[in-house]
Write a protein that binds this DNA or RNA. Structure first.
Length: 264
DNA sequence: CTCGACTCCTGTTAGC
DNA sequence: TGCTAACAGGAGTCGA
């Protein structure tokens, strides 16, 4: 599913859409427009415009227009894909359909050269907004520093995994990245976020960076070593112990009771 | 302010 | 075989 890793891949793909004149906007699904945006407002803001930058903060993809202040925010939910000129940056998305139907196009930008940029999202959990609130998101997971992790994430009694999924504290981590990172760092997901010692905090950040790099290289958040075993009856890829399956932070959570002991 | 519970969405899959 | 219900999780809202 799209987590920060997929959005980064989308961002690179979106660079192909820069510096091209926008001639029309298709909004076949008005539900997909968020933050009070209307089809008319989006057209007024974008037609005749061109994008000059594709940025990412967490799971939010931001396209900057050439005019001052014009920003388009793209969200992909758990099943949304970005397609530029009929080229999808990512073919496979966990939990999404393996089919590829044009009827799932929720938002399309047409360029003067005949190409286009579109969001194809079967489950409609993504969305498009004008002038998204970037500051509502925490520091991006790809660049978070040890001190920021300590002060913004590793605090309080809330389960560590719930903290990692809280986009206001650190942006870009979804369920699969969280489970893989905690498993590799050998830390129990239910540990109070503020209970980690310095060694564990260091391990967590080191593994987070490694997971993000590995997943980006391998093509998505479904490429983790734990992924195949994130099913009922799954076993730890290292020690073959039966994995624990719990709900933490409102999300299904798999962890190894031997490699991720409750006490640090 | 925090934080858990609930809700939204729909393709896929397990189970009868 | 055909149907139903459960499941997946990102993000917003709400109430304690």
């Amino acid at each position: 599913m799209p987590e920060g890793v997929e959005i980064e891949i989308y961002r690179v793909g979106a660079e192909a859409a820069l510096d091209r004149e926008i001639t029309s906007i298709e909004t076949p699904d008005s539900w997909f427009l968020k933050g009070g945006a209307t089809p008319e407002a989006v057209r007024d803001a974008l037609v005749g415009e061109h994008f000059v930058a594709a940025r990412r903060r967490g799971k939010l993809l931001i396209l900057d227009g050439a005019d001052d202040g014009v920003r388009l925010g793209l969200r992909f939910g758990m099943t949304g894909r970005l397609i530029v000129d009929d080229e999808a940056s990512i073919d496979y998305l966990e939990y999404s359909s393996q089919r590829n139907e044009a009827e799932w196009d929720r938002f399309v930008i047409h360029f003067a050269d005949g190409g286009d940029l579109r969001i194809r999202d079967p489950r409609r959990l993504g969305g498009v907004s004008l002038d998204p609130d970037e500051e509502a998101l925490g520091v991006d997971a790809f660049v978070i520093k040890p001190r920021q992790l300590r002060e913004q994430v590793l605090v309080g009694d809330t389960a560590l995994k719930a903290r990692l999924l809280d986009q206001k504290r650190v942006a870009g981590i979804g369920n699969l990245i969280a489970d893989e990172t905690l498993w590799r760092a050998k830390i129990d997901p239910a540990r109070p976020a503020g209970s980690l010692d310095d060694r564990e905090a260091g391990r967590l950040l080191r593994q987070l960076r490694k997971v993000l790099a590995d997943f980006t290289r391998d093509g998505g958040s479904h490429t983790g070593r734990l992924q195949d075993q994130r099913v009922r009856g799954g076993r730890c890829p290292i020690c073959k112990a039966d994995l624990d399956r719990r709900e933490i932070g409102g999300r299904t959570t798999f962890s190894c009771p031997r490699h991720q002991p409750v006490s640090g």
